[in-house]
């Protein structure tokens, strides 16, 4: 049982590293004239779509109601998030190597705090895109804002916006869960 927390933490780090291979979050827009839907994938370092033209298509739709263009180059998080995730992974590896209860807890808590900050940051971006509308927008609906949901679905005019974690986001959730499991097992074995 001594090595279990170490193995679990290494597994957790491996799950976390999936963020480099899979998107963190996905937002799908559905309307009758878009039978396949339009899906945008938010990664830790980029924003992609289900086709090379997806981001352009979303921006075209958004510009009618005065939303800002989504331009990955102007989102600083996409440059430093990979470093944050990398550092978090390194910290996890240190925790696994040292394999002390305190360090396991520290890693899990840092992870939790960073994840919470990340989600809050994502919310702020969504709020900004949804509320900070151009005063010269061709279509203005009084009282209407276009903030997509953080989690779940919401009708925005003729579009149903559906927002859920992507594959990378699910792995991140598993990773965080494992981080706490490692600490919990370590604590139990240390006490007994």
């Amino acid at each position: 049982m001594k090595t279990a927390p170490r193995i679990i933490t290494i597994l957790a780090v491996a799950c976390l590293m999936m963020l480099f291979f899979y998107p963190l979050w996905r937002i799908t827009l559905i309307a009758p004239q878009y039978p396949d839907g339009v899906t945008m994938y938010i990664w830790i370092n980029k924003i992609t779509g289900d086709s090379p033209g997806t981001l352009q298509n979303i921006n075209i739709l958004n510009h009618y109601v005065g939303m800002k263009h989504i331009e990955p180059d102007s989102i600083p998080e996409l440059t430093y998030f990979p470093w944050v995730v990398g550092a978090l992974g390194l910290l996890g590896l240190i925790a696994a190597f040292v394999n002390k209860s305190g360090l396991h807890l520290a890693w899990a808590v840092v992870f939790l705090v960073l994840a919470a900050l990340g989600i809050y940051d994502f919310y702020l971006w969504e709020y900004d895109y949804g509320h900070n509308l151009s005063p010269t927008a061709p279509i203005k609906v009084p009282g209407m804002s276009y903030q997509p949901p953080l989690f779940g679905s919401k009708m925005l005019l003729n579009f149903n916006a559906i927002s859920y974690p992507g594959t990378g986001g699910i792995f991140m959730g598993i990773s965080m869960f494992l981080a706490f499991v490692a600490w919990w097992i370590k604590r139990k074995t240390a006490r007994s």
Binding site: P52, G53, Q56, N57, I60
Partner: peptide, 11 residues
Amino acid sequence: VYFHVTNLEQD
């Protein structure tokens, strides 16, 4: 006058 029109749409 030659109008060379490119449709930038990818939808």
